[in-house]
């Protein structure tokens, strides 16, 4: 993740979002923009979790169904659904989430390494667990989520 992994009182800024009942978060340094759902052009024969491509001001950006990627049950699209456009390397990719909740500051010392989570495929993509107001936030390892797709 970002450079802010120095021990002590350092904080990590993350964008928290909902997938089903759970709250996930992505380090803010990856995030390019957050947009509303729009027409997605289906790409035949792409991996099942790739929803297709969108036209982002003349650029063609692939869009991933994050729930499907993490092996979570898919949810109906709602007016709250958003596409988080993250930038990795010099390419962008959109991640569909159920809702974007807020920008959080997580003190570094309140982030725990991921514990053994049962069964869920998403465990592979979690880099840490944070607690905010007794709520559990799962920190997502974006590079892993996206990186494996291109292999």
């Amino acid at each position: 993740m970002s450079a802010a992994t120095i021990a002590g009182t350092t904080e990590r800024q993350v964008v928290a979002f909902r997938l089903g009942e759970e709250t996930y978060a992505i380090d803010i340094s990856y995030i390019h923009e957050i947009i509303r759902m729009r027409t997605i052009t289906f790409v035949p024969r792409a991996p099942h979790y790739m929803r297709g491509v969108i036209n982002l001001r003349g650029r063609i950006v692939p869009v991933m169904d994050l729930s499907a990627r993490l092996g979570l049950p898919s949810h109906e699209e709602t007016p709250q659904s958003r596409i988080i456009v993250v930038e990795i390397g010099d390419e962008s990719i959109g991640l569909i989430v159920d809702a974007v909740s807020e920008v959080l500051r997580l003190p570094e010392d309140q982030i725990e390494p991921p514990t053994q989570m049962t069964g869920s495929e998403s465990a592979n993509y979690i880099s840490g667990l944070g607690k905010v107001n007794d709520r559990l936030v799962l920190l997502l390892d974006v590079e892993k989520v996206v990186g494996n797709a291109s292999q």
């Binding site: 790409v43 792409a46 991996p47 692939p62 291109s150 292999q151």
Partner: peptide
């Protein structure tokens, strides 16, 4: 097409 799409067979690119 972005390489993030994975190994897409059958398409050489896209246009707007």
């Amino acid at each position: 097409l972005s390489r993030h799409l994975g190994d897409i067979n059958g398409f050489s690119g896209a246009t707007i």
